[in-house]
């Protein structure tokens, strides 16, 4: 899976499913960077073919509405949208 990795403090496996064109996704990524947590992210809109279909199915498992950003935390919690308070609370 072509994930981008950002180094930081280990808070378990954190994956951000995002769109490269979305400002709320960008804010979410910048917030994770500000919180200095270790995380992976992927821009779903830049994927093609089978890879794209696979990731879309994966996102739908966490968030059936297939909206972005979808942030999946280590404990299985899912935060949909740029929910600054929720993300801060979960990761600090």
């Amino acid at each position: 899976m072509p994930m981008e990795h950002v180094d930081g403090e280990d808070k378990g496996k954190i994956v951000l499913f995002a769109l490269s064109t979305c400002q709320w996704c960008r804010k979410t990524r910048l917030l994770l960077e500000e919180l200095k947590v270790d995380f992976n992210y992927i821009y779903v809109d830049l994927l093609e073919g089978e890879e794209r279909s696979e990731i879309i199915e994966e996102v739908k498992k966490y968030n059936p509405q297939l909206s972005f950003p979808t942030l999946v935390l280590d404990d299985g919690d899912v935060i949909v949208g740029f929910n600054e308070e929720g993300i801060r609370e979960a990761l600090t």
């Binding site: 769109l19 064109t21 400002q23 996704c25 960008r26 809109d45 879309i56 972005f68």
Partner: peptide, 22 residues
């Protein structure tokens, strides 16, 4: 930044889809 993304989508898909939706 949003308008730039709409232009990106226009070039990519042929229509200016919402930048925050797939």
């Amino acid at each position: 930044a949003l308008l730039e993304s709409i232009l990106v989508n226009e070039d990519r898909y042929g229509y200016g889809a919402c930048p925050c939706r797939l």
